[in-house]
Design a protein around this nucleic acid. Sequence first.
RNA 1: GCCUUGGUAGCUCAGUCGGUAGAGCAGUAGACUGAAAAUCUACGUGUCGGUGGUUCGAUUCCGCCCCAAGGCA
Length: 314
Amino acid sequence: MRERSPYIVVVGPTASGKSQLCVALAHSMNGEVVSADSMQIYKELHIGAAKLTNEEMCGVPHHMMDVVSVGDSFTVADYRDRALKCMDEIFARGHVPIVCGGTGLYINALTGKLDFTAIQGDPSLRSELALYAKTEGKQALFARLKTLDALTASRLHPNDQKRVIRALEVTILTGKPYSEQVQSFAKSAYADVPALLIGLRWERKSLELRIRERVDSMMAQGLLEETKTLFTKGIPLEHPSMMGLGYRQLLQYLSGQIALKDAVERIKVDTRRFAKRQMTWFSRDLRIHWLNMDTETDLCVLLRSIRTMFMELK
RNA sequence: GCCUUGGUAGCUCAGUCGGUAGAGCAGUAGACUGAAAAUCUACGUGUCGGUGGUUCGAUUCCGCCCCAAGGCA
């Protein structure tokens, strides 16, 4: 892990106002934004990924957006490598990186001491293991993990197939238990890094309202048209880029599975649940300084308090 | 006005041959190391529409009333 100068990280659930705040923050302190968002990665995703328009970016450079195409594969490790490189370049320019995003795993990959193993995903092994689970049962797959790596098995649920498969994958490919190669988040995530982590928090009801309004506004901006364009590309619906909130539900509508009205309602419900999961994730990161957005409505006051905290960190 | 079918969890409904009830979805809480907007876990008391009757006991059977949908006028 390389040495780093101080930088800022802004996290929070979807629709909490991170992007706008980061632009203002970057403006006021010579910063550049580094997105930490698993959907903004994709070039062809705009409205549903809630990317700011060029106009809204107000000339502030944004990184880690539009880096791969929707058909490409992309992993946390890819994110970490490329984002760290971006941050190095920003520091070299004498600017401050402002990491902005709601993908908790990406945030941890960047700010924590996440030691990824050298083992990349092996699609053929994965599908082989998935087939095994399908024919022999999830319990049988889990039993294999139990014999190879009892420690990891003890913290995973047999039904959590993705994690069971990943653990088996690493263990089989290296011949060493997965648990010897990774630490749990609890031990690693609070590493002492020179970052100021800011979290944006809303009352539940306020966030729900913001989510509803944002989905309606996305539809008004042409989310359906954007999804139709994706639909014609014929990318497998299981591809991560097709699983994004908004796209997933509208693709179901376009393939005749549900009514448009229900799809839009579904987007709102699923987005709310996602926001809840994000809050669960971030709430255990004790480094985060939470700002209550319901009460702190003055942008200038917000920016000033963040800058003050950042100066104290330095 | 008459007939029919319904009224059970926030929603859609199942069920109780009379011993006060349970699924899916929603909701709440949590987990999370190379798919993460993904994936996974735990959590189920509600005047069983109202009221009177029969009964040891009624959400269940009977009467009346209210509400909804459909049909006949």
